[in-house]
Design a protein around this nucleic acid. Structure first.
Length: 330
DNA sequence: AAAGTCTGCAACCGCCAGTTC
DNA sequence: AGAACTGGCGGTTGCAGACTT
């Protein structure tokens, strides 16, 4: 069958997002939560494809995103995971909760690939036989499943206390969801889990936190938000550009995006402050630890790096598969 | 100082898989 | 059961700033 386009191509705006559009999108998501992307353009009036809205949110506007300046630790992790998983950026990104798959993909293509090709820094090189991109085969899924299981077990074992925080917040929100939402914005459907629950069960807690937290979408805050954006480096002639351009966002602690999210330091590598917490807590990647419950990288690394058998197994599997494609009896 | 080249990143495109009807 | 719909993913491109000549 022929798939219709995801949206009507005519009248759909393309290109860089303006601060105003970002604001509209953020406002909408703050109110309704992410999800149901198809309804977003219609309900916000944005002349954007639903897909574009989702991408803009997940790759840029979503709180908790760290931009630019990959640490050596992250770099190593990416290299190893890429060797392990191939170009499955979403899977790799799940190990780096503060990074988007797009970011990691870009970083790989622009930095790491070249680095490894030119001899690299001693980090493990990607195997000669990479899992073929076309083979989303059983072995690969099995591998991913195993990794996920191991990761979950590891997380549970290593971060019992941190895990309690979101749980406590969920419990608190469950106790008084309506009260929290009600104080936030009057008719705000914050307590409605229609859209948000689709993405994460954390939604109610997040909305409660949002209502009680530092960020309220008032005219004042919108003004501050726009001021912050307006004050940013402008890319291109007249185009307001994208807030938080890579390097500047990560280095400039007074970035507009931080302001816009009520000091949740969303663009910063620093963990969310104890007071208030991130407004968009529900926006943690599905199945991925939030910044609160983020597993320590060192733990992952020791698991990944110390036990080479994981890598070797993966590489061997890939090699075998390349040599003689077959249906693995997993 | 100007022109050309390189680099990095945001965003788009098309395909795929899961879900809904 | 199968078609339609939606969201997600990976590859690719276009553009603007940085750098080099």
């Amino acid at each position: 069958m022929v798939r219709p386009p995801c949206c009507d191509k005519e009248g759909v705006k393309k290109g860089p997002w303006t601060p105003e559009e970002d604001l509209v999108l953020v406002s909408y998501i703050q109110e309704h939560g992410p999800g149901n992307w198809r309804a977003v353009p219609a309900r916000t009036g944005l002349m954007r494809c639903s897909k574009s809205c989702r991408l803009r949110w997940t790759n840029y506007l979503r709180p908790g995103i760290k931009r630019g300046n990959f640490t050596e630790q992250e770099e190593k992790l990416i290299v190893h995971l890429q060797a392990l998983l191939g170009n499955r950026w979403a899977a790799i990104a799940s190990y780096l909760p503060e990074r988007t798959d797009n970011d990691i993909k870009n970083y790989w293509n622009t930095h790491l690939k070249r680095k490894l090709q030119s001899g690299g820094d001693g980090a493990a090189k990607p195997p000669a036989h990479r899992p073929p991109s076309s083979s989303k085969g059983q072995w690969e899924r099995r591998l991913q499943t195993d990794i996920n299981l191991a990761r979950r077990a590891l997380r549970e074992a290593l971060t019992p206390l941190d895990d309690l925080k979101p749980q406590l917040q969920r419990d608190a929100a469950a106790d008084a969801p309506a009260a929290g939402a009600g104080t936030g914005g009057g008719d705000s459907p914050a307590s409605s889990s229609s859209g948000a629950s689709q993405s994460s069960p954390l939604a109610p807690a997040a909305f409660a936190a949002a209502a009680a937290g530092p960020y309220v979408l008032t005219a004042e805050n919108i003004s501050r938000m726009l001021d912050g954006w307006a004050g940013r480096k402008v890319r291109g002639g007249g185009t307001p550009g994208t807030p938080g351009g890579a390097e500047s966002a990560s280095t400039g602690s007074s970035d507009a995006s931080e302001v816009s999210y009520g000091g949740a330091a969303v663009a910063s590598a620093a963990p969310a402050p104890a007071c208030g917490g991130p407004v968009f807590e529900y926006e943690a990647k599905p199945g991925v630890p939030t910044s609160h419950q983020q597993m320590p990288l060192s733990a992952i690394e020791s698991w990944l790096f110390d036990d080479d058998s994981h890598l070797h197994h993966a590489v061997q599997s890939a090699s075998l598969l390349d040599a003689a494609p077959m249906d693995y009896p997993f």
